[in-house]
Each structure stands twice: as structure tokens, then as C-alpha cells.
Design a protein around this nucleic acid. Structure first.
Lengths: 120, 120, 120, 120
DNA sequence: GTGGTCTAGACCACT
DNA sequence: GTGGTCTAGACCACG
């Protein structure tokens, strides 16, 4: 994993884990790599991983058990998390486009055209 | 204007000014508020405004004339600026959605539905 | 039994056992569950129970007889243990309240009101 | 300030600040010492102070302004915070006492006697 | 000068 | 072996 130097590493780790959960690569109740292990894999300091894990815990996405490790929360809903993240992105996108003075029609057209180009 | 504390204020000021240009609220050759004035309006440190203006200059979007103030560049192309900003936003949006495992069809559907809700 | 993740589990086990003794649920000379058994009941690592039992021994509250198990000390004074635990709790409580700037009168009033609500 | 080695320093800093707010020593909107400054005063690492400040921010008790410092939240209600902290302490105390098998009457008597001793 | 992030490395408590 | 805390010290972005 290569990090964007513009954005704090721990936030990028959080985003990555969330996306893996949503895509089903990580399942509820599954154990995350230990802080040290992930730190090694990502060539990052263990404290940085810890920070990411802590925020995931604050967000109720992960849970930590003393001496056993950090786990994806067992009660988490994949669909819900996906909706949440997708809505955030969509909201952000539409706000941006509106502020640029684009109408709904123009936004839709732009998107459709762009998707077509990527499919070809 | 209220700022997102996650993002440098000067960048948010830049974004805001760009959007105003694109929307036509600010016209080419028009004079921007003085740094002090804008700082007062936005309850922000004058240095922050200065930094925003400087970056706008570097991007050839504004020009500073000694003793006269800062002006929107007269040669600026609204359409081009709009395309640029819209493309950036679109790109970012599509990347996010793909990483969430959504297909092109799903993305389109989500957008269309969301636009409809906003129109009603 | 559900544990507070802020506090070591073995301490919480110790507290629980002390309370059961004070309430008479566990009597002097009575045999405690085996470490394995208690570990199973509490869904806890056997080492954790062992540590709790060891600390109870150090505090002269329990005794381990080789091959026979762990027993509540026969010479233990219920009243004394109760006083000790109650004093600790009271001390802690009064310190907290004082630090919040509450007067003796206010503390008393708060307690009385709270007890009344619980009785109704 | 001397710390209890049993409890994380950052939690003790948090508690201390909360108490100062409740007692009126720190007022809403007031600036807290800078992280470095407080770290020096308390002979503690700046990171430790930062951790405490961050948690206060998560709890909406403090607010951080980029480059300006950390401030007590302006919308905070002293009475509410006091009630909250007092209720927590009271709740904890009563739970403890009940678990020791003490009746409401006994609890009250113990408290009254203890307050009297402290007044004399 | 202020907070934010990160590293390196240490020690500890818990399982 | 696992996470939790802490230190020392560095660098950066921001105001």
C-alpha cells in the first residue's frame, strides 16, 4: 500500500479497512492483523496503526479485546456501512457540482459520458 | 462561511473563489477584496488570505498589482476552469465509488435517484 | 458477567468474589470453583482466573490446597471485609464529590434524593 | 500535580480539567494552556497532553482552532457537566454499596456519620 | 507559537 | 504475543 503524502497515514489506513469490509474482504468478527504485524506489512510505525485502530473502535467498527487483538465488530452491517460511505461521497460530489453552477441535467450527462468512456 | 477544520483554511478560500469565478459571481479583471477586508469578513488571519491569494497567483487565476490590489486574471477561461474543477470532482467521486465495490450501473442508479429526490 | 474493558479482568473477578463473600453467597471454608471451571463459566482465560486466585491468597482471603482446590479462608471476618470495602468506596465517592465543588450538605441531599427515587 | 501511577496520565489530566471547569476555575471559551506549556508545567510529554486534549474534543468539552490553541467549548453547561460527573460518581458508589449487601438505610447512615467526622 | 503527525523505542499489563 | 501508555524528538502546516 502506498500512501498519499497529502493525507494522514492513519486516515488512509482507516479508509482502506472500511473499504475492505464493505467489499467483503474483511468479515464481521474477523480478527484484524496485530498492530505490529500490520505496521510491518505497511512499513509504518506501530503507533500509527494503533491510532487507526483506535478510531475504528471509536466509530464502533472494530472492537479490541485485551491481549487478544482487534476484531471487526460482529454487529456491523455491511450494507449500512456501504450506504453510509456511498452517501457521503455522493453528497460531497453533488455539493461540489452545484457550487460550480452545474444543473442536475448537466451533472447526469457528465457522469453518463464518463462512465461510457471507462467502459469502452 | 464556515470552514471544515480538517482542511487548511487557505485551500477552502481558494476553492470558494474559484467557484465564484466559475459561477460568474466574480468576473475576469474584477478586483478582489483587499486581503484585510476579506480577512475581516471571513474572521480569518490576514496571513491566511495572503496565502490563498498567492496560490491563486501561482495558478495564474489572479494577479496582484502593487498598491492597487488583487484582480481576477483577465485572460481566464470560465469554461476551462469549470471543466477542470468538475473533472476533478467527478474523478474523485468515481474512484471512491469503485473502491466501495459499486458497479457503473449502480453508481448511475444511485445518482439518478438522488437527483430525483432533490428535484421533488 | 460482563467486564469493563477499562479495568483488568482479574481485578474485576477479585472484586466479584469479595462481594459474594461479604453478601454470604460464599462462606468461609467453602470451596471455590476450580480455575478451569470458573474460566469456562466466565469465558475467560484460565491464566486470568489463576491470577485472581493468587491475589486472593496474597490478601489472605483464600487458600489453595494442593490437588484439592482453592478455598475461602476459614478465619475471615465478614464484617471486617465489608467495612473495608465500604470504606474504600465511600472514601472514593467523597473525594470525587468534593473535587466537583459540592458541599457536605449538597452531597447528603443528592444521596438522599437518589435513594428515595430508587425506593419508589 | 502528582499522578496516580495506577491510572493513565492522560485520563487524570482529563479528569482534572473537567473538575476545574465544574468548579469554575476554567470558564467556557477560555483558552487552555498550549500543549507544550501544560506539558512543561506537569512534567509530562507534550504527546500525553495532546491525547488528553483530543479526548476532551471528542467529548465536545473542548475545541481546537488551527494554530491558535485549544479552548473550552463555549456552549458547555457547567451545571450539566457537574450533574453528569456527580451522577456517575453517585451511581458507581451506590452500585458498590448494594453489591456489598448494604441497605439504603445503612448506606445513608454510613455517609452521614462519615460527613460528621470530617466536619468536626 | 500552535497543533498534527510520525518515528523509534521503551516498559507494562493482560491473555 | 497482544494492545496500552509514555517518552523523546523530529518535521510540517497553519495562523
Amino acid at each position: 500500500m502506498d500512501f498519499n503524502p497529502e493525507r494522514p497515514i492513519y486516515l488512509q489506513i482507516i479508509d482502506e479497512i472500511k473499504k475492505r469490509i464493505v467489499r467483503g474482504d474483511l468479515k464481521p468478527s474477523e480478527k484484524l492483523p496485530s498492530q505490529r504485524e500490520l505496521a510491518t506489512i505497511m512499513s509504518v510505525n506501530p503507533n500509527t496503526v494503533q491510532r487507526a485502530y483506535k478510531e475504528l473502535e471509536d466509530a464502533k467498527i472494530a472492537q479490541t479485546l485485551r491481549g487478544q487483538g482487534t476484531f471487526i465488530s460482529s454487529t456491523i452491517s455491511l450494507k449500512e456501512l456501504q450506504n453510509e460511505l456511498a452517501s457521503e461521497a455522493l453528497e460531497e460530489f453533488l455539493t461540489q457540482m452545484s457550487e460550480l453552477g452545474l444543473s442536475h441535467g448537466e451533472i447526469k450527462e457528465l457522469l453518463v459520458r464518463s462512465l461510457q468512456e471507462r467502459t469502452e
